[in-house]
Design a protein around this nucleic acid. Structure first.
Lengths: 249, 249
DNA sequence: ATCGTCAATAGTTTGGAAAATTATTTTGAT
DNA sequence: ATCAAAATAATTTTCCAAACTATTGACGAT
């Protein structure tokens, strides 16, 4: 499919995929392939709507059929891919209603998690929030996103880390994992999101908004639940609008 | 290739597993095995804590390695099984904190879904609620659960259908699917739940409580959100208490 | 020209056997 | 007798070829 016909039998684990080459390789091929595919899904290397052909994937990830199928099955279980019997797997297309759906779930769950964190968070939790917020502010979202893709990626990573730090203290592994999955789901629309993001009004509002959020959380203000929900809802509206005006799939 | 050596080309699909023989068989072996294993997990035929050996599973579900592994991988993705590399898959043990976790998520999501359903539900939705409630009341929970296991299962199915009917009108496929998954997760504690359930106080309260819930929902009373949450939370407390006193894993 | 049938092709799914890894037992030395 | 190391056994993981299913294109009938 993509870069087919590579004649050189490369170092399998290390050079498996573009985005994941840095990560520590796992103990099984299936696990590595799983991570690679997931990474490529989130980065957009495997674009929404595309059908994944077995033999292309075999070449792309340089492995046998069994681990590939296992990785795909797991991703189907996590709803990152959709399967039709005897017709292979596809990358789901982004739809506005689906984005709204994901954000709705995410808001409900993050609100719950933040409530727990406010109850259970200790000093380390507070320190971590302050630290991740600082990191986020030190790598601000560029004015024109198209110009500096790597800077944008860095900001996104730190932004995500900040949001996670707020709820990290919630003693609910499942809840945190589920939220992480929902965030992953929204990552897939990164390309679309960024394309409409660069008027800098966003960038400015964001800094102030995140600061307010942090201060309310550190003060254990119960109103921070609503504030977080509103913050996420603004993102939902923005993403949804971008999807509406942008590409019409 | 399929049933090697067997002279008679038997109906593979039908005789595959105990619990799933009635279901319409799917178009691939992997799908059938997936359903069978999931069903056996929910029914308790594959008890929590047990390690699943490939050999045994191959015999039990009468299939080849490939579809079996595919089914297992999918269940791992849905968190019904946990995998350790080169050490196979296990059925997770029930822990009190995990039960609390699942219920917490379920409550947050069902509250959200019910809110949407109140906005979007139409006449058919209302009719369906009344119908499923009627069915539930017609197959009440037996006084002593141990005596009539099939009656208990019937009640559980109808009870579940009733709860789902309340939120069915929410236009959020992902949300509904996620709730369904959480309900599945709680199903696994069925055996434990039932063992401590049979003082009939529960049975009586339940009928009245469900009636009240239904009436509030049909009246589109916003307070029904809190009522549903409280109802589910009572279940959480009950299940949690049973786990605490019962088996101590 | 349009529709339906049928063969050829492309792609997915499956079973089994070989390779790799982990667990268990045996052996040998202190 | 105890412990470490080697050998063996059990189990998971992987590759691969065979079987099956869907799709495409050609051909003939209406």
């Amino acid at each position: 499919m993509m870069e087919s016909g590579a004649a050189i039998p490369i170092l399998v684990e290390e050079a498996m995929s573009e985005t994941l080459s840095a990560q520590p390789s796992a103990q099984t091929v299936a696990e590595n392939v799983y991570r690679s595919i997931k990474s490529d899904l989130l980065s957009g290397a495997l674009p929404p709507g595309s059908a994944l052909l077995t033999r292309d994937l075999l070449a792309r990830y340089d492995c046998g059929i069994s681990p590939l199928r296992e990785a795909l099955a797991r991703l189907v279980g996590e709803q990152f891919l959709e399967a039709a019997s005897h017709r292979g797997v596809r990358v789901p297309r982004p739809s506005i209603s689906d984005v709204e759906d994901v954000y709705r779930i995410r808001i409900a769950l993050e609100r719950e998690a933040l409530g727990l964190a406010l109850q259970c968070g200790d000093d380390d939790w507070e320190a971590d929030i302050i630290a991740t917020c600082h990191r986020m502010e030190k790598a601000p979202l560029p004015y024109h996103v198209a110009d500096q893709p790597s800077a944008v990626m860095e900001w996104e990573a730190r932004h995500r880390a900040f949001h996670f730090s707020l709820i990290k203290a919630a003693p609910s592994p499942r809840l945190l994992r589920l939220i992480d999955q929902m965030v992953d789901q929204t990552e897939r629309y990164r390309a679309l999101r960024l394309s409409g993001m660069d008027r800098a009004k966003l960038g400015h509002d964001l800094v102030a908004e995140h600061r307010s959020l942090m201060e309310m959380v550190l003060a254990r203000d119960p109103a921070s639940l609503d504030f977080l929900a509103a913050h996420l809802d603004r993102t939902r509206i923005a993403v949804s609008a971008i999807l509406r005006e942008g590409a019409a799939p």
